[in-house]
Design a protein around this nucleic acid. Structure first.
Length: 484
RNA sequence: CGGGGCGUAGCUCAGCCAGGUUAGAGUGCUCGGUUCGGGACUGAGAGGUCGGUGGUUCAAAUCCACUCGCCCCGACCA
């Protein structure tokens, strides 16, 4: 019988190939990553999803600390007047404010805004700690929640409250601050590529796509399996914008008051949604081993109490072989049939399944099955300490390679508006064109295709051909895509 | 915020158009038996303010109005 015909199949997950958004919702909820909550637009992150986030978080926290930053914590409530000091910033965010107006049953003299981001709080607070060039660079980070009044929400991708880290730094010179922007963007590239196995494009955002209040923004962009782009982290250069708005100054080396140059950069729980959509398939999640909450799930197989005892005894040396702090192993002793467990752990994306049953025991071996392609192999128990870590590394690399191959297969270079419009009419993916950087061109393309500019790639050079949209002299290449 | 779709058991849904016994199915859940290498079978059982409010009617899951929520597509949006 085909899997689709089996009773209850429809209760599992919708097909990725037929209904991508429905598939995404099903996978997130049925793999128990997250769920809807009693509060509109806000989600509950369940233990399996939170463990996944923790693994990404810990890896990034490590990088942030290794690059010299320290973690702080700042208040979640920001006086409205703080936010209003930087005109473009407040203009960009005011429609998303969620505001506390009452305390102790009385109306507050001044409303407090639930932080949508903390540039204004940081500038207001850090001016007390920055007096001299000797206090710079000030390299801060905080892990927190932020609130934005989104009109259309999706689990992990866009919610009214979400978790992230926001780094904020202040520097003596523009050059040093700009280096910081690139250095942190590279940390994000490492998290995306080396940990989440998602190849990303690095580059600068267009003027119309940049962060409110920034001089420029950079981002990493990943391709999802439906060909859409997901902005997976951003890094912003503010110049003196925030320092001036908050009158944050330091005494420079020549004894004059100067404005420091600042940056901010963030990566959020959205990355979890990215991992789901970058690697998942019809059976559910596929988690990169380095961030998988469970890397190896052990399925004992037995038909009687006698066999159960035999399997249990045989499992002792297996678990001992896998007893490594760097290996995350779970044994599934639940009273269910093996096939049920196979399907469930595939839905949850566990990279390796280790089966131990009578047939294996007779040979002194176990069966390893890779989530990647369901390939099976028998391995002597004694070889597990070597075979398992090697297999996890190969799976990690294979997921990255597969995602890169997918992206390459869905990326084209085009030179005209007609070709670009036709591409988005009948296809999905990234389109690279020469561009003159006029915002008017973005409006035209968006109106015709709903695609937007994602990044001006870091490595792009001035093209010889004219702007694909208006025919004017092109100044750069740009990547167009439909985006989340 | 605009357009479309949908709210009936934990989940997926039927019933509504054409109002009429005690509101159903599958799956899940609890207990028992047989099973167990790709989503088992079977017996018994628990589980529902039919999203909410108001209206029409002898009678509303079903018709009407309002409202709340969810999903999709847009707009908006680091």
């Amino acid at each position: 019988m085909a899997e689709e015909e089996k009773p209850g199949f429809v209760d599992k997950i919708r097909k990725q190939s037929e209904d991508f958004p429905g598939w995404y919702n099903d996978v997130v909820r049925k793999a128990q990553l997250a769920d809807y909550s009693p509060v509109k637009g806000c989600m509950v992150i369940r233990p399996y999803g939170y463990a996944l986030w923790e693994n990404v978080r810990d890896a990034l926290d490590d990088l942030i600390k290794k690059t010299g930053h320290e973690n702080w914590y700042f208040p979640a409530l920001i006086p409205l007047s703080f936010l209003e000091k930087e005109a473009k910033h407040v203009e960009g965010f005011k429609h998303e404010f969620q505001t506390v107006t009452h305390g102790g049953g009385k109306e507050l003299d001044e409303p407090l805004v639930l932080r949508p981001t903390s540039e204004t709080m940081l500038a207001s607070v850090l001016k007390n700690y920055i007096q001299s060039y000797r206090d710079l660079p000030m390299l801060t980070n905080q892990w927190n929640n932020v609130f934005r009044w989104e009109l259309r929400t999706r689990l992990f991708l866009r919610t009214r409250e979400f978790l992230w880290q926001e780094g904020h730094t202040f520097h003596e010179t523009a050059a040093e601050a700009e280096q910081e922007v690139d250095a942190m963007l590279d940390c994000y590239r490492q998290i995306a590529e080396d940990w989440c196995a998602m190849p990303v494009l690095l580059g600068r955002k267009s003027e119309s796509e940049k962060f409110a209040g920034a001089q420029y923004s950079k981002s990493i962009e990943a391709m999802m399996k439906d060909g859409k782009a997901l902005q997976s982290a951003t890094s912003h250069y503010f110049g003196e914008n925030f320092s001036r708005a908050y009158d944050l100054t330091f005494t420079g080396r020549s004894n004059v008051r100067e404005y420091p140059h600042s940056t901010s950069w963030g990566l959020s729980t959205r990355i979890v949604g990215a991992v789901v959509m970058a690697h998942g398939d019809e059976s559910g999640l596929q988690l990169p081993p380095r961030i998988a909450p469970i890397q190896v799930v052990v399925i004992p197989i037995f038909r009687s109490d006698t066999e159960r005892a035999q399997v249990e005894a045989a499992l002792a040396p297996v678990l001992k072989a896998l007893d490594d702090d760097d290996l995350r192993v779970r044994v599934d002793w639940r009273d269910e049939r093996p096939g049920f467990k196979f399907n469930e752990w595939e839905l949850k994306g566990v990279p390796i399944r280790l089966e131990v049953g009578p047939r294996d025991l007779a040979k002194g071996e176990v069966t390893l099955v890779q989530r990647l392609d369901r390939s099976k192999q028998s391995v002597p128990i004694g070889d597990l300490p070597v075979v398992i870590p090697a297999m996890l590394r190969r799976i990690q690399a294979a997921l990255f390679d597969r995602a890169l191959e997918f992206r390459n297969a869905h990326t084209v270079r085009l030179d005209s508006l007609e070709d670009l419009v036709r591409f988005f009419d009948e296809s999905v993916g990234f389109v690279i064109t020469p561009w003159c950087e006029r915002p008017e061109d973005e409006a035209i393309v968006k109106q015709k295709t709903t695609a937007t500019t994602r990044v001006i790639p870091r490595e792009s050079t001035r093209p010889e051909k004219p702007c694909a949209i208006c025919g004017g002299p092109a100044t750069t290449e740009v990547v167009w895509a439909k985006a989340y």
